[in-house]
Design a binder for these strands. Structure first.
Lengths: 107, 107
DNA sequence: ATTTCTCATAACCATCTGGTTATAAATATG
DNA sequence: CATATTTATAACCAGATGGTTATGAGAAAT
């Protein structure tokens, strides 16, 4: 009963998880071992976080031999962008109204 | 030791809290009582959520007599927009690279 | 075949979270 | 003044969360 958007926001709520996702975005695909190295937490903790990110659609996993490579799925951020857009539209609308008002006052 | 961005993401992680913020964005300033009416939870719960939103900078409160009016502070979403932008830049860059590649192949 | 390496899962635990009811504080009203 | 209304806070509780260690499963290496 949890919407994809809920999953997204919740997945990104944790700073450690966000840091993992950021690394995958900026540095590209990486193995669990490599991610664990720079994470400051245990390997199982990293695996759990990656599981949450995967369930939220934020990362993809690719198995190769005995290691798993994770990569960012940036499209998954779309709902977040849409949402912020919807929340800002009204701000923009009000801003436009204000601009209109100022223009009319100017004439 | 919690960064403003951390506060933001955490505040928006809860669907009830997000719903409150959405209402304030779309319907404008409202009292606690009015927000409580449509929230499906108790008034103290709503007050606590509003407290979290306020600490994250997402809402402002205005006291008038015995009631408190809350309003959305949409600018507070800026860090979130910036963050998604940074995460997507690389996707765009790669996309551009791909476009370039395709163009070069086309010639 | 045995051992080693890499990752995921299980079991567990302390803390955080989101809700509740009860109550206090401040303002309006009779 | 006494009472009612509105919001915030306190105290509490069940369940979620993020971490740990131990272990299992599969692939590679010796």
């Amino acid at each position: 009963m949890e919407s994809p958007t809920d999953l997204l926001f919740r997945a990104l709520a944790d700073p450690t998880r966000r840091a993992l996702f950021e690394r995958l975005c900026l540095e590209g695909e990486q193995t669990v071992g490599r991610l664990t190295a720079g994470a400051g937490i245990s390997q199982p903790a990293v695996s759990k976080h990656l599981g949450v990110l995967r369930q939220a659609g934020l990362v993809l996993d690719r198995h190769e031999g005995r290691q798993t490579h994770y990569s960012a799925q940036q499209r998954a951020l779309a709902p977040l962008v849409d949402w912020t857009g919807r929340m800002n539209r009204f701000w923009e609308a009000r801003f436009d109204d204000l601009e209109d008002l100022l223009k009319r006052m100017d004439q």
